[in-house]
Design a protein around this nucleic acid. Structure first.
Lengths: 252, 252
DNA sequence: GGCTATAGCGTCCGATCGGTCGGTCGCTAT
DNA sequence: ATAGCGACCGACCGATCGGACGCTATAGCC
């Protein structure tokens, strides 16, 4: 209908395609994404769309790359300004929760969905997913090491263990939001992540118990509850009444 | 090839179909499961197969029901013999880890995959998944309450929070096993779950052989940590001094 | 002002999907 | 002996999938 053929606009078209692919794939799955539907959504012809990528797989890979950029901008960049170490880790987790809570991808975190969709198959898509996950885990691991080096986490802290658990918290959050639309889930995720990172729930959480002392997370010495948090609960027997309200998230 | 038409054998055929569907769906996804492929796998014709269910959706629902039975037998039953409360919770978690570790479903836990596949869509499949998850979470929650009533967990323990985190641990384990085939993941899951349930890592065996038969989870007492479990601190754990916390963390 | 590269379209293709339909044949009850 | 039931088959259906091909018309360069 409206033939626009400039090279600049072509790049823009390509961006539109990728952007829409990411959104669609997060809902329908990377595989459920179909060329015809995508083309119709964008007012393009199948062939016109496919001309930008060649194959569906190339489109899927492009969507994953784009999703990684979005994820990084949503989760890493907001925290990049924080001081390295524990402060940044906590900021990352808060941004991570917020990213899931706000539904940046309408169907939940694309990486999580795609992982469970492709973990049984082979091929370049799965390989890219593996690389992306590894890269993210490395980023987090490095930050944990930084926190240890600064004395903000105990010396023995096993970074891989901590990253493993943080990942689990976020997956559980993604699950609770997408399947149950559970409004209490973000609060739980903040609490869990906070406890993993020094015992303090992330800001934005409420059930916070006004404990006598308020340890600054950045301040505590190697002995303090760290990743393992074994000691997290030791001190306070008192049960907290759950006043379950979640103020809008805010990050540290 | 071998025409068997008796009603009794028909029921057996149906069972075979459902069984195979569960395995296939855990790898290819509930949607990726196709009638033709399934029929070919079983040496049936598409129509002969579909005659048992009518529609693909009915087959999917039957597969999910069957998967729930398997899950219950693998994860709940081994722990049903343990004393109610903390002991049973720990036994459940050990069985849960073992179930994932042994790859009872070749493509990972079917419920996890199916959830992420269907959480964006509507329909009976998603509704069944929701009910099944809710039922499982209720089971766990009830057990947490029992543990609190017996004084094995602090009075303020927020059961929903604990279940949320345990779920996350298992999802992270599923992810690490399926995407990365990480042999260290079961150990991490045992450590994380153990810490959530009283500070002691689960007594799963140490070095962790990826596939082999696991010791009967029902057998071990919830108390004593397995060999190495106590490798406190520097060993490999999330090195906090966990000896500090004999009383379980409260997770409120 | 002509030449070429290319964004995009329209059409068509083979494969495969879920599902239907008529029919075959063993089993069982009469 | 036979009638009926139902498990199962083989052929087939319309829809839809990813993708190939040829074409047009403009943009960008000479």
């Amino acid at each position: 209908m409206s033939p626009r053929r400039s090279a600049a606009e072509a790049r823009h078209t390509r961006e539109r395609i990728v952007e829409r692919s990411v959104a669609l794939a997060s809902v329908e799955g990377l595989d459920g994404l179909t060329i015809g539907r995508l083309a119709a959504d964008l007012g393009l012809s199948k062939s016109g769309l496919l001309g930008h990528f060649g194959t569906k797989q190339a489109l899927q890979l492009a969507a994953l790359e784009r999703a990684a950029v979005i994820f990084s901008e949503e989760v890493w960049r907001p925290a990049a300004g924080a001081a390295p170490g524990l402060a940044r880790l906590r900021a990352v987790c808060e941004a991570w929760v917020s990213y899931l809570e706000r539904g940046v991808f309408p169907g939940g975190c694309l990486f999580v969905s795609a992982t469970f969709e492709y973990d049984g198959r082979g091929g370049p898509v799965r390989e890219l997913l593996r690389r992306q996950f590894r890269a993210w885990e490395r980023r987090l691991t490095a930050e944990v090491h930084a926190a240890v080096a600064r004395g903000e986490l105990p010396v023995g802290t096993a970074a891989a263990q901590l990253v493993f658990e943080l990942n689990g918290v976020m997956m559980s959050l993604n699950h609770a939001l997408q399947l149950h639309a559970d409004p209490a889930a973000p609060g739980r995720a903040r609490r869990a992540a906070g406890r993993l990172l020094g015992g303090e729930p992330l800001p934005g959480t409420r059930g916070r118990v006004p404990r006598g002392r308020t340890p600054r997370p950045g301040a505590h010495p190697a002995g303090a509850p760290g990743a393992g948090g074994g000691g997290a609960g030791a001190g306070d027997g008192a049960g907290r009444p759950q006043s379950a309200a979640r103020p809008p998230s805010k990050l540290a």
